[in-house]
Amino acid sequence: MSTLNNHQSQGFTLLEILVAMAIFTLIGIASTGLLTNVLDDDKASSERFAQLEKLQRAMLTIERDVLQAMPRAVRINGELNQVVMRGGEDELGGSADSIGFVHGGWHNPQFMLPRSTLQLVGYRLQDDKLQRLYGNYLDNVIGYEPKTKDILDGVSNFQVEFLLSSDEEAQWQESYTGVELPMAVAITLTTDVFGEIRREFLLASQ
Rank of each mutant, 00 (worst) to 15 (best):
M1P: 08
H7P: 06
Q8E: 14
S9N: 14
Q10K: 15
G11N: 01
G11M: 01
T13V: 08
L14D: 08
L14E: 07
L15G: 12
E16I: 10
L18M: 13
L18F: 09
V19D: 03
V19L: 15
M21N: 06
F24E: 07
T25G: 08
L26R: 05
G28Y: 00
A30P: 04
L34Q: 06
L34R: 10
V38D: 05
R48D: 07
F49N: 12
A50P: 10
Q51D: 02
Q56L: 03
L60R: 07
L60H: 15
L67I: 14
M70F: 09
V74F: 02
L80M: 12
N81K: 05
Q82K: 13
V83P: 02
V84E: 03
R86F: 06
D90S: 12
G93P: 00
G93L: 02
G94W: 06
S95K: 13
V102R: 02
P109I: 09
M112Q: 13
L118K: 01
Q119S: 05
G122F: 02
Y123M: 04
R124M: 06
L130C: 11
L130E: 04
Q131E: 10
G135D: 03
I142H: 13
G143Y: 03
Y144L: 07
Y144K: 00
E145I: 14
K147D: 10
K147R: 13
K149R: 13
I151Q: 02
L152A: 02
D153I: 12
Q159E: 15
E161T: 08
L164E: 05
S165R: 03
S166P: 09
E169T: 06
E169Q: 03
A170N: 10
E174P: 14
G178P: 01
M183L: 14
A184C: 10
V185E: 01
L189Y: 02
T191H: 05
V193H: 09
I197D: 02
R199F: 13
F201T: 03
L202N: 05
S205F: 08
Q206Y: 15
